[in-house]
Design a binder for these strands. Structure first.
Length: 727
DNA sequence: TTAGGGTTAG
């Protein structure tokens, strides 16, 4: 394009005059790429050569200024158009549509003294672009120039509005009226067949395409690829691609996306690297897919490469890369990219805004997130949801609820975002309350909703409620979802119903590392530690998932609880050697607990002292507990001293300390420890047990009379006791 | 007048 521009600028006056068509094409490109500086230079040159008032060129210049919103130049140009008002009117209508001023465009149209086929097509496609389908159809029916263009514009507009069936009906009417479709019509109609997932209809249209002679057309072939992909016919899509005489960036991007959707990111990357030509969309596809597939780092790398190679990222690209940065919690890079977004001036876009909200909230700054949210011009439900989950993430649950109540049109994710917030911060009553409000509002709970609510049941070991939800899950057919199944198996395991838990685990069609961890932990916690280790061995056989820190913690826990000390030590040592992961303080605590439980106290003490990281107070507590069981008072004193150093912040250390003194009969020390705790204002959250009766949770704390009906409860207990004595 | 790409929850 630039070379054409240069040749035009330096060509003689005669040559320029001979090249009106070429100039029109250059002006089209300038307008498309928003190169207003070059456009103004060219305009100056055209004035000098006296060609600027040529009708076709003047119209293109006007459109260029209209699209760049240059009011001064627009006014100047309009003065030159006394002779051909109709064309100017059409340009103004198009420009107003571009600016989102549909009603202004309609006013201009209605006031026109005469209209041509361009005016009618422009206003019809305008209505369709703004989703005003009924008005579009009304104007289409009134249109005296029902030509190929207006048929095609209406059909494609209907498809874009998701009304593919209506579009197909109109296509049939078009054929009946004798108008022959062109490549654009076929492209839209093929898309409609794809949206309807109608193979038969697609085949009929394909026959027509061949008959009319468009089967080798570039855009028609591209739409045929997409049609086949839509129907999951990967082989046909690839065949069409391979047989194409010429391919453009759209064809390559479609085939690239095919591999991405098949989950073959490596092949997609190969296609991407081999593509002869790339544009922002191809980059955008690759970036977004990496981001969606959890490889945020690669998404960001590609973004940097794209910028380095001189491509200008568009809205989609920015939205994807900001989303990737959000999952990496990369605040600094995020702020730099935000700066670029502000420079281009697209921060008010709903897609960009939502991902910015997400970025700041995931980095812990809901304040910045709120600023980004407030600046979005037309907020859609995703923007609202991002902000609600942003508040939820940052434990600002009141703000989350307040904003949630203001969402104009909530969807499933709005409810889920709020529920997740309450779940994360253990507000279980609110989880159930919002869930019940959701059902009352008529919103269908999704798999995600169930997995969260069942998780709440697991935390409360609320078996009855959990069973009830399990029933609903089966009814709705959500029981083969990996998240729902994992939540269910965890709920059963935490409620002590290991058999049901195992049943679900065995039936799961797909498992992730959380499912395996929940099963291993569940078995270990319920006393089936050897079975837990057998499940871990089975996990190792699968080889499809690499073990993570949590799963090894569950394994160590299992070993510790069935006295398999050497096996436990073996797993602990293989963490670095075999699995290449650094054990953290919790793994060390687990090993200390394991050694202390089996009486290997000196080994445990040495293990703590040799630790490369700061031991948790729980590690010392585990050792102290071992000292108590195996009556090693000398070590207990040493450990107790260590704990009392750490106990400032950890009240559970003091409690343990006083228990050790109590078991040794050192009552003065007990009193002293308790007094110290009281003086320092430390309070250990009291132990609590609970029972669920008819969906109502009854909690009992260690002090008497904590339950509202405790007098009656004790009376019944007394009655039972006396009856038992009678027997 | 067309074909390929985007943001949020588990």
């Amino acid at each position: 394009m630039r070379s054409i521009l240069r040749s035009l600028l330096f060509n003689s006056r005669k040559n320029v005059k001979a090249n009106v068509n070429k100039i029109v094409s250059v002006l089209n490109d300038i307008t498309k790429e928003r190169l207003i500086v070059q456009g103004t230079i060219l305009h100056g040159h055209l004035i000098k050569t006296g060609i600027s008032s040529q009708k076709h060129i003047a119209v293109k210049l006007l459109i260029m200024y209209l699209k760049s919103r240059k009011p001064k130049e627009i006014g100047q140009m309009l003065k030159e158009f006394d002779g051909f008002n109709l064309v100017v009117h059409n340009c103004l209508i198009t420009a107003n549509l571009e600016w989102g001023k549909m009603d202004e465009a309609r006013r201009l149209f209605d006031e026109m003294p005469e209209r041509n086929e361009v005016s009618w097509t422009a206003i019809i496609s305008g209505f369709l672009r703004f989703g005003r389908v009924d008005e579009a159809i009304c104007y289409f029916e009134r249109n005296p120039f029902q030509n190929l263009f207006s048929w095609t514009a209406t059909i494609s507009g209907l498809v874009q509005n998701g009304l593919s069936f209506k579009a197909m009906k109109l296509f049939v009417e078009m054929l009946q009226s004798g108008v022959i479709p062109n490549n654009v019509t076929f492209t839209s109609v093929m898309r409609a067949c794809g949206e309807l997932s109608d193979f038969y209809l697609g085949t009929c249209v394909l026959g027509l395409i061949v008959k009319v002679g468009f089967e080798h057309d570039l855009s028609v072939s591209n739409s045929l690829i997409t049609f086949n992909l839509r129907l999951n016919d990967v082989v046909s899509a690839r065949r069409i691609f391979d047989r194409m005489q010429c391919r453009d960036v759209v064809s390559w991007t479609a085939i690239l996306d095919m591999y991405v959707q098949m989950g073959d990111l490596a092949e997609a990357r190969r296609v991407f690297d081999e593509m002869p030509e790339r544009n922002e969309v191809s980059w955008s596809t690759m970036i977004s897919r990496y981001s969606q597939n959890g490889d945020a780092e690669e998404a960001v790398n590609l973004f940097h490469r794209m910028v380095q190679q001189g491509y200008k990222p568009n809205k989609s690209c920015f939205a994807s890369v900001v989303s990737a940065l959000a999952s990496l919690e990369a605040l600094i890079t995020g702020r730099i990219v935000h700066g670029q977004i502000l420079k281009i001036g697209i921060e008010r876009d709903a897609f960009i805004g939502s991902s910015l909200v997400d970025l700041y909230c995931k980095c812990g700054s809901s304040k910045d997130g709120r600023v980004a949210f407030d600046s979005i011009l037309e907020k859609n439900v995703v923007c609202w949801n991002s902000m609600v989950s942003g508040y939820s993430l940052n434990n600002q649950l009141e703000e989350a609820k307040e904003l949630f109540d203001k969402i104009p049109q909530k969807n499933n994710i709005s409810w889920n975002s709020l529920i997740t917030g309450y779940l994360e911060y253990e507000k279980f009553d609110e989880v159930f309350e919002v869930f019940s409000d959701m059902l009352l509002s008529g919103e269908q709970p999704s798999k995600s909703t169930f997995s969260s609510v069942i998780c709440a049941c697991a935390s409360l070991a609320s078996l009855e409620r959990g069973k009830n939800l399990h029933g609903k899950v089966i009814k709705l057919g959500f029981h083969s979802d990996v998240f729902v199944d994992t939540a269910l198996l965890d709920m059963y395991a935490k409620s002590g119903n290991v058999e049901s838990s195992k049943k679900i685990f065995k039936r799961m069609p797909k498992r992730n590392e959380i499912s395996w961890t929940a099963m291993i932990q569940g078995l270990a916690e319920n006393g089936f530690a050897e079975e837990a280790l057998a499940v871990f061995e089975e996990f190792e056989w699968t080889k499809s998932i690499t073990p993570n820190e949590l799963i090894l913690l569950a394994v160590l826990f299992a070993c510790s609880h069935c006295g398999l000390v050497d096996k436990g030590l073996h797993y602990f040592n293989s963490m670095e050697k075999v699995y290449h992961m650094q054990p953290n303080a919790r793994h060390y605590t687990c090993v200390v607990d394991m050694l202390s439980r089996s009486g290997r106290l000196s080994e445990a003490e040495k293990f703590i002292l040799d630790m490369p990281c700061e031991p948790e107070v729980q590690a010392w507590a585990a050792l102290l507990s071992g000292c108590k069981t195996y009556r090693n008072e000398r070590m207990a004193v040493r450990v107790a001293e260590k704990i009392s150093e750490l106990a400032e912040k950890h009240p559970e250390g003091y409690v343990l300390l006083s228990n050790v003194y109590a078991s040794a009969g050192r009552w003065l020390d007990v009193l002293h420890t308790r007094k110290e705790m009281k003086e320092k204002g430390l309070k250990k959250s009291g132990g609590c047990s609970w029972i669920e009766v008819r969906n109502q949770l009854h909690s009992f704390y260690s002090q008497d009379g904590s339950h509202s009906e405790s007098t009656e409860i004790y009376e019944v207990l007394e009655l039972l006791r006396s009856e038992m004595q009678l027997i």
